[in-house]
Design a protein around this nucleic acid. Structure first.
Length: 687
DNA sequence: GACTGGT
């Protein structure tokens, strides 16, 4: 950046500060009239950190770089766009300067806070040995300046932590919220939503309707969300009515918020279970502690787990709820310490979670919310035994004692039937894409023989514009590596992600893809689902998946909410098995269907491929027809859960097969020359 | 049949 740029920028900032802070200023020091001619008029000694410049509230309060002691004093609090009326929690102190609770440790006046632990006030929970509060022995509470944003629950009340501008910056990014999910809010009204099931609660239209906890509402607005997305409009009231939910919605349509908001709303208002015993023992050591989360979110990949956790951290800000994430491939001891320090909302991948449960670090006995993200993947043949083990064979409360929420972009019928085991009378929700598929994603199918794929790919990469990210999907880890090195040799800035790489390699690759250092990424199925990567303009299916739902998830990495995207797929004889589903999706999305593809389609009827085409596609619905409530087509069993008709439906499940352990044996470990580590049966020897 | 997922 040139020096002129810089000086212009600081001029701009100064002017912004001047005009905004004008009324606060002592007389004469900065008069706008003179000020215009004096660009260097920033008051000396007052350093304003870059991310706060031009922001009236914090800038004026933190101009000496000290923390805001009492944000409630600020007339403009909260400083960012917040159109919530704080109706519900009348005692919430931060917004009510006149109503400060003397026990409130966070934003309350410092004078009321005991100076030493020997001067204990009996009514201050933090220093009364007889009272119990979650995290009582958590030493983080004893460092008032560094972690003063941590809230707590004590004596049946929620005591939010202080606001902390620096931490807010790391959590929420720049205050203008440049870095939002890229969702085009204007398009939201067009989105079709279907809800089915008995007594579906009506949707809300804005966050005020949901009467959210005021702290949660603030965190949501800090994150830059002003109106609920279509999924959220429905899922928030459904979850708040304590109903189970099966929701079909594109990731990036606000799914994560769709379950985090109602869960946290509940948690903020109700607090932790009073009898989480290990927290009530005075002087218990970290070593003896057991993490007892109230909410568990399961994810099929590590990257998705991290992504959900990062979201959760935002909404948990200043609250008593400690989010926590646990996944494989990373140091387990760090994760154990993290979980023991505080774990109220746990995001996890299945394998590592089971490990932690076996080690006695985590107990699921207080789970009140179970969320399966990408639920169709979680319940298909590879994952189902693990999920079943976690949900049914550990100490998790039964289906009637917890609330279960499932989210995915696709819900094939056989998975819906499987999912009944984990749900009680549930609502089925189907939300269309943000903007229709036809507008957002241009789907091209090209006939490319196996041996021509490399050169076809190079041609495509060379002919496309430079800006934007390109995601290339392949079927195998081996092919991912081959293609990766091939592209490198052709001097493309390229990275690759697949399950055979170490976790740090995976994270590094994803990071450099996101920030554009390597605008081309080769990926296996690990990146197909849920990952929210802004600016992916092109998805290339170098190999088409054999399951059409995977296709839907893959192309969903582009054209995210409001942006346009292209999806190119290489098709050849080997892909005949998905031709029906593919044509169905292209039709649904009003895409051009190449004439040769129609010929292949007809062949597929002649040769009986239709049998293998999964789950009869081609009807309406969003993203291929896997998004309908199967109960609507089940005569006599409609919405009649766990009744005698259950037996019929369940025996029907057998005809779909696909249940039980992974028949793939040692396949996934065979790659890379290393012998399977856990015996020849490793595919199913997990448990 | 490969992909995901614990040491």
């Amino acid at each position: 950046m040139s020096t002129t740029d810089q000086s212009q920028k600081s001029l701009h900032n100064d002017l912004a500060n001047l005009s905004l802070k004008d009324s606060n200023r002592p007389n004469g020091s900065n008069n706008t009239q003179d000020g215009a001619a004096a660009p260097k008029a920033r008051p000396k000694g007052k350093y304003i950190p870059p991310y706060l410049r031009g922001k009236p509230t914090f800038a004026s309060q933190t101009s000496d770089d000290s923390l805001v002691d009492d944000p409630a004093e600020s007339p403009n609090f909260p400083p960012r766009a917040a159109n919530y009326s704080q109706t519900r929690d009348k005692s919430f102190p931060a917004s009510r300067p006149d109503n400060l609770d003397p026990n409130y440790r966070g934003a309350g006046p410092r004078d009321n806070f005991p100076q030493s632990r020997f001067n204990s006030q009996n009514d201050n929970p933090a220093f009364n040995r007889n009272t119990t509060w979650s995290g009582r022995n958590d030493t983080r509470f004893n460092r008032p300046q560094r972690n003063n944003f941590l809230g707590m629950w004590a004596k049946g009340k929620h005591f939010p932590g202080q606001r902390n501008p620096k931490y807010e910056f790391t959590l929420f990014g720049p205050p203008d919220g440049v870095e939002h999910t890229g969702i085009n809010f204007d398009k939201y009204d067009d989105i079709p939503v279907e809800a089915s099931g008995p007594n579906v609660p009506p949707p809300i239209t804005n966050f005020e309707d949901a009467s959210l906890n005021s702290l949660l509402a603030e965190n949501i607005s800090l994150s830059g969300f002003l109106t609920p997305t279509p999924v959220q409009k429905w899922s928030i009231p459904i979850c708040s009515a304590q109903r189970d939910l099966m929701a079909c919605a594109q990731t990036g349509s606000g799914k994560t918020g769709g379950f985090l908001f109602p869960i946290l709303n509940f948690a903020f208002d109700i607090g932790p279970p009073d009898d989480r015993e290990n927290e009530n023992v005075p002087g218990i050591s970290l070593r003896q502690k057991i993490a007892m989360p109230i909410a568990l979110i399961l994810s099929p990949t590590r990257e998705l787990a991290t992504q959900i956790y990062d979201e959760a951290r935002k909404y948990c800000y200043r609250s008593w709820v400690r989010p926590c994430v646990v996944y494989g491939g990373a140091d387990i001891n760090q994760q154990i310490i993290g979980a023991k320090r505080g774990c109220d909302l746990l995001v996890a991948t299945p394998g590592r979670l089971v490990d932690m449960i076996q080690r006695g670090v985590i107990s699921l006995k207080y789970i009140q919310f179970l969320v399966l993200d990408e639920a169709d993947r979680m319940l298909d043949m590879g994952f189902e035994p693990q999920i079943r083990r976690i949900v049914e064979q550990e100490d998790m409360p039964g289906v009637h004692l917890r609330q279960t929420l499932m989210f995915s972009a696709t819900f094939p019928k056989n998975i819906q039937i499987l999912a009944r085991d984990f749900l009680k009378e549930y609502v089925f929700l189907s939300v269309g894409r943000v903007g229709s598929t036809s507008e957002n994603i241009t789907q091209k199918i090209e006939y490319v023989e196996e041996e021509d794929k490399f050169s076809a790919l190079i041609d495509i990469l060379n002919s496309q514009p430079d800006q934007g990210l390109t995601l290339i999907f392949v079927e195998t880890k081996k092919m991912a590596d081959i293609l990766h090195s091939h592209l490198i040799s052709q001097s493309f800035q390229c990275c690759s992600i697949h399950g055979g790489r170490t976790q740090s390699e995976r994270e590094y690759a994803l990071e450099s893809f996101k920030n554009g250092r390597a605008p081309v990424m080769v990926a296996t199925a690990v990146a197909a689902r849920g990952l929210d990567i802004p600016n992916v303009t092109h998805v290339i299916n170098f190999d088409l998946p054999s399951d059409i739902d995977d296709y839907v998830h893959r192309i969903g990495r582009t054209g995210r909410a409001g942006n346009v995207g292209i999806a190119t797929s290489f098709f050849n004889r080997g892909n005949r098995n998905i031709v029906r589903g593919l044509v169905g999706i292209l039709k649904d999305a009003n895409q051009e269907i190449p004439s040769w593809l129609n010929i292949v389609l007809r062949e597929s009827y002649d040769f009986g491929y239709s049998k293998t085409a999964p789950r009869g596609r081609g009807r309406g619905g969003y993203g291929g027809g896997s998004s309908r409530d199967y109960r609507e087509n089940t005569k006599g069993a409609k919405f009649n859960h766990r009744s005698k008709s259950t037996a019929n439906v369940r025996s029907g499940a057998d005809q779909y097969g696909n249940r039980g352990s992974n028949p793939g044996a040692n396949s996934s470990y065979g790659y890379g020359g290393a012998p399977p580590m856990y015996g020849p049966d490793s595919g199913s020897s997990w448990f």
